[in-house]
Design a protein around this nucleic acid. Structure first.
Lengths: 148, 148
DNA sequence: ACAATGTTGACCGGATTGGTCGAGAATAGT
DNA sequence: ACTATTCTCGACCAATCCGGTCAACATTGT
């Protein structure tokens, strides 16, 4: 597994914030409930997202969390690399391999895959993810209509 | 990191066997030395490769390991999936997600990347990897020639 | 003052990783 | 039959990571 729950949950949380953009701070408890994330674990992810500059948090009653920038200016690549660290599929793809090692033998294959992956992830914004989710919801509603 | 040392070392070992195809069994100690893999750890990887049907092993003096099929009939995808298990980058990409979860939100992006990745890996054979390594060696020799 | 909320860091059990080690089984050569 | 060589198998182990809990504290609105 390339991504741990950090990347999964973290992006879920960001999608939730993006969906409620402009409605004031969203509370930890709400995010946790809607996205099925353990509340106390979500803490750590929000802290990481804050340090990464993706969200702003305000304390006290009526406090909560909001996006630091518009959803269409946050791409999935930045988000995931901030949450997970490097997404390199293989050790020797990331580091410069020091000397003339070349002992790995499959690095060139993975370099291609990795580059392509990063391009794709960079092309998807948080806004795209929200839009996709809204589309999916509409689909569900429609199919339910015909079933019932 | 998507791949652990299992996938890295395992493929290294297979490249080594492919490179010495037709020269009789290659011994564990040789592979370990040439490819810089701890000998006793290599044991486990060879066992896994044997169970996966990729190699045959013979005991006793003069024994060792050889490819079970020609190198051009073994693709990187099969090897890695046998060594590492599923290469799915995200939980929800692999399992059918049970009910109408769709809570992940980024699964569609990763499904595309995953499919593409598997196609690429399926297109690379062990023979390709050996050829690439030989090319690389020639390059090194050539550049060394000019430097000296 | 008090309640609501976020912030931080310590801690924890279980799984996985990346090995080591030793006893044993098969086989070739003598 | 004996021995040296080589693979085979499973037990074991230390370190790290993962997913998560918890308690103590800081900040702010009323």
């Amino acid at each position: 597994m390339l991504l741990s729950t950090k990347g999964d949950y973290g992006v879920r949380a960001m999608i939730d914030l993006a969906k409620h953009e402009g409605e004031g701070p969203v509370q930890r408890a709400e995010i946790a409930r809607r996205r099925q994330i353990p509340e106390s674990y979500l803490d750590h992810l929000l802290a990481q997202l804050r340090r990464g500059g993706f969200i702003r948090s305000t304390r006290g009653p009526g406090g909560g969390h909001e996006l630091a920038r518009p959803a269409d200016q946050i791409c999935l690549l930045d988000l995931l690399e901030s949450l997970e660290g490097s997404l390199a599929p293989l050790q020797c793809v990331e580091n410069p391999a020091g000397g003339p090692e070349a002992i790995c033998g499959q690095d060139w294959v993975w370099k291609e895959i990795y580059d392509d992956m990063r391009v794709r992830l960079a092309a998807v914004s948080l806004a795209d993810l929200v839009e996709h989710e809204r589309d999916h919801e509409r689909e569900l509603v429609t199919s339910a209509h015909y079933v019932i």
